[in-house]
Write a protein that binds this DNA or RNA. Structure first.
Lengths: 236, 236
DNA sequence: TATAGCGCATGATTTTTATCATGTTTTTAG
DNA sequence: CTAAAAACATGATAAAAATCATGCGCTATA
């Protein structure tokens, strides 16, 4: 079983320099530290469910989480991948709606929960944090718009290559420097790319044949990142 | 040529009850009123261009604007449609980046420009407005995520029906109660749906044959909204 | 007012992608 | 440890969508 760092206080939290909250004033960090509730979710467990009401925000201390939407026909669409330092659950809270997506742990994950009232009150008194939140939302909106454009305009082959690079950007490599450090099923990759599972499987096999990746079950190694970038046909 | 209402002051502006700014405190509204610069953009004119730096936010007083992205291969993707009361340009400003999309007037449009420094300083001092902005961003993010899911999972026929309904929601009908009150080219509709222009033309013809719409050049009349909703296969 | 160009329309064809079918391998649970 | 289920893989086929091609009609403009 995964072993976690000590995160009993926000002041000693491993994420204290990476999270949005690092910009909050010390006094508020102390408040958060008092009221936060830490929790460990095992792989596959749900932090919150689409359709339910938000009671606070979640702050990932260590681990990996996927945020996914159900399409009108019940098919999962993975909207975002989250890692240590990321905050989630704020979107529904800020727009005063139910959760529009479910959050599920991709591996054993340590999470701090910050109650709604506290979050809102800190946000009200700490302008810096409010601006950080606005920046965070703006960045997410930007990413969503770019993804939207690619989804509308790029063929699946390019989108799969892009998705593999995105996974690498998000979670990085294992110690060997080439294995993606997350285990996703082919179906999950498909739900990230926005395609059928079989298409993903087929294209991954092609990428393997082309020598760009190596496949070993759910372990994916990136052998030629440059070619993958070329395959993804990215401008930036 | 279009004739516009008087909008010389924010206090008498037709949008003073609908815009996000309606939640700003009176004192700040007065500041904005002093520093704003009003302008009329003719159909086809650009308010700002993807890639350039934002110097403020734009507030539509009256008119219609499209916000669009260029895909990596240069194809337009329409991200949002805006109308009187809508604000634009804030995303890039808040995340401190260049514009990631261009804003182009779909018809003669009256716009107020609010300089960056003023916008930021009001946002700093007016918590209510900051929360409104966070809510706005959250709502946009939500819409983008839903659109993303539909783009990934729904066939073009459903997406076109949904787009027509979306246009209706955004701009409404003309006096006759059935004609969409915006003139978009087939290509623009395609760039909203995320498909090829020919596919859009073909499907619109089908919708016409099915008696759901009536086509008269760029004039589109919705004859059977219920069937259109069914065709869009929407859950909510 | 002639005409070049654009937007609209539609047919034919090709490409892309999803679906169905089937077998194999890997996990999971009893 | 073993059976059942889930995940992976791959071929065959069907469906969806893009592309190419052509023609028509409107409109901007020289």
């Amino acid at each position: 079983m995964t072993h976690f760092h000590d995160a009993t206080t926000c002041q000693s939290c491993a994420q204290r320099f990476t999270s949005v909250f690092c910009k909050a004033k010390q006094e508020f960090i102390a408040d958060i530290n008092e009221q936060k509730i830490c929790n460990v979710y095992k792989k596959g467990q749900t932090l919150f469910n689409e359709g339910s009401y938000p009671f606070g925000v979640y702050c990932i201390n260590d681990g990996k989480v996927k945020l996914s939407h159900l399409g009108d026909d019940g098919k999962e669409q993975i909207i975002r991948l989250l890692r240590g330092g990321d905050v989630l659950g704020y979107r529904a809270l800020l727009s005063g709606e139910r959760y529009s997506a479910s959050a599920i742990a991709l591996e054993d994950t340590q999470v701090c929960f910050i109650p709604k009232e506290l979050f809102i009150s800190v946000l009200k008194s700490d302008t810096g944090l409010a601006f950080e939140m606005m920046k965070l939302l703006s960045d997410e909106l930007h990413k969503a718009e770019v993804k939207l454009t690619h989804l509308a305009q790029k063929p699946i082959r390019e989108r799969l290559a892009e998705t593999l690079l995105f996974i690498k950007e998000t979670y990085g490599y294992e110690a060997d420097g080439i294995t993606l450090s997350v285990r996703l099923s082919r179906e999950e990759i498909a739900n990230l790319v926005g395609t059928a599972t079989e298409s993903t499987i087929r294209l991954l096999s092609e990428f393997k044949k082309d020598g760009m990746v190596e496949l070993d079950g759910k372990k994916i190694k990136i052998l030629r990142q440059k070619e993958l970038i070329k395959t993804a046909n990215l401008q930036d």
